[in-house]
Design a protein around this nucleic acid. Sequence first.
DNA 1: GATCTGACCACCG
DNA 2: CCGGTGGCCAGAT
Length: 116
Amino acid sequence: VSDFRARVWMVVKAIPKGRVLSYGAVAALAGKPGAARAIGAALSALPTDSGVPWWRVLSASGRITTPRIHHIATLQGRLLEDEGVEVSETGRIAMRKHAWHPSAETVQRLSQTPPR
DNA sequence: GATCTGACCACCG
DNA sequence: CCGGTGGCCAGAT
């Protein structure tokens, strides 16, 4: 697996239960600000039972943008509600209220820990 | 190396 | 609150 994807998964794994992050935010924490689009691809390439909480990653507008045709969007909404994140019927989440704001120490640790 | 593809994003009308 | 646009990026062809 590429270092990039390994870092992305590491960052997503660090998101606490009940909190969410935008694709762009994950990209920034992974050391690749601007690579938001590549985050989605990295998560879609995730094997089943990877242990990576991919459902805690949403669009910057607080919308669930996972493919509805494959029922992924529905699953994501359910998983989020299961851990206390409010999701409207149209799949909207209040980022202001549920976004994760990692401490400076955590940000530093994520940037220094080599990908695995 | 050139092209094409998205689970993106900020901006504009 | 849409809907379109141009820009950006890692991967797969």
